[in-house]
Design a protein around this nucleic acid. Structure first.
Length: 335
DNA sequence: AACCGAAGCAACCGCCCACGA
DNA sequence: ATCGTGGGCGGTTGCTTCGGT
């Protein structure tokens, strides 16, 4: 097979930015003759460019149906949703955005959306909440951002809500870590009371006071640097908590990582996925594989989450108080 | 006004696959 | 079955613009 001898072997072909004159030659030729062999096109069109360069210039810039300008919120949403499912399959994502090129989407992702997700505490690669404790530093800001997003009804409210819950989850981990670590100062009684207050035991809520039943928790070595794993919590979350004081109701299935019935997917449970790649239900054979699904997903990863009542939690001042109480933790003490 | 670093983006590079001979 | 070619794709580069000092 081998790599095709492309323009890189053609001596003297021009590289770099295209001039308006070159653009005109290319556009005129394609309008007159249509798309054909890109390799032969430069010579026929009178361009001192390689065919590949002509193709890229045409598909990414000169094509008449190209839509330029700022991406709308709706387009951003589509990109993020599909990136969560397809990964860096920019061309596949581009098919969902008529007029946008894969290159433009890729650049927009790298320069805007990636940073946006990072700013929200979301790993742009896994679309899961970042698992480092530094996230907790920004937890109050996260709450404020989520509240602001709710007030303005912006699209990323669900992401923020989920992220806030993920942060809470990590906060609980930090708390349990602190409570079970000899190096930490003994928590105050107020902190204990606060823990219980955050999660009153009613349907649809994690029974956080179960965390106080620490002997029931099994501490295992960190699954990766900076993370600890609490089998007791994990089992409680993923199995419904038979024998555990924890209930699963307070966290969505997505946050629970859709781990198997055994709860063995420890990483997923410790880092609840914000967006879960849906299995392709269009029969294309992809979904979980490397082949991008070309079909429109049956549902957005966010669909259905709107019904979850997160704002009550976000507005729960007890969380903010808990953060303040958590000051006994060494900020540099990673889990 | 000049300098400098960061950000944005167009374009290029090189690997890969599909397809026809 | 093998090979050559065309073209698609994701990653990277480098130029330009912008904002801060």
């Amino acid at each position: 097979m081998g790599r095709s001898p492309c323009c890189d072997q053609d001596a003297g072909v021009k590289k770099g930015p295209w001039t308006p004159e070159e653009d005109k030659l290319l556009v005129d030729y394609i309008q007159k003759n249509g798309l054909g062999s890109w390799r032969r096109l430069p010579k026929l069109a009178g361009l001192n460019r390689c065919g590949k360069s002509c193709r890229l210039r045409w598909t990414n810039y000169l094509r008449p149906d190209i839509k330029r300008g700022h991406f709308t919120d709706e387009e951003e949403k589509i990109i993020i949703n599909h990136h969560a499912m397809l990964g860096n399959k920019w061309s596949s994502i581009a098919t969902k955005l008529p007029g946008r090129t894969d290159n433009e989407i890729k650049n927009y992702w790298n320069t805007h959306l990636r940073k946006k997700l990072l700013g929200m505490g979301i790993d742009p690669v896994t679309h899961r909440p970042r698992t480092d404790l530094n996230l907790l530093d920004g937890f109050p800001n996260l709450l404020a951002a989520a509240a602001a997003a709710a007030a303005h009804n912006t699209w990323d409210i669900n992401a923020l809500k989920l992220q806030a819950d993920a942060a809470k989850f990590q906060l609980l981990q930090a708390l349990v870590h602190a409570l079970t670590t000899a190096t930490a100062t003994a928590p105050s009684v107020d902190l204990m009371a606060l823990l219980a207050a955050i999660g009153p035991p009613h349907p649809g809520r994690v029974q956080y006071d179960g965390l106080l039943n620490l002997p029931a928790l099994t501490i295992v070595p960190p699954v990766e640097p900076g993370m600890s794993s609490f089998v007791g919590m994990l089992n409680g979350f993923s199995t419904g908590g038979a024998g555990s004081a924890l209930a699963t109701d307070g966290l969505s299935p997505m946050q629970l990582g859709r781990s198997g019935p055994s709860g063995s997917n420890m990483t997923a449970a410790m880092a609840p996925p914000l967006v879960v790649a849906e299995e392709c239900n269009a029969g294309c054979g992809s979904g979980g594989g490397t082949t991008p699904c070309e079909e429109t997903p049956a549902s957005s990863p966010f669909v259905g989450l709107e019904n979850l009542n997160y704002l009550d939690d976000l507005n729960n001042d007890n969380w903010k108080e808990l953060l303040e109480q958590m000051s006994f933790l060494n900020p540099n003490d990673q889990l």
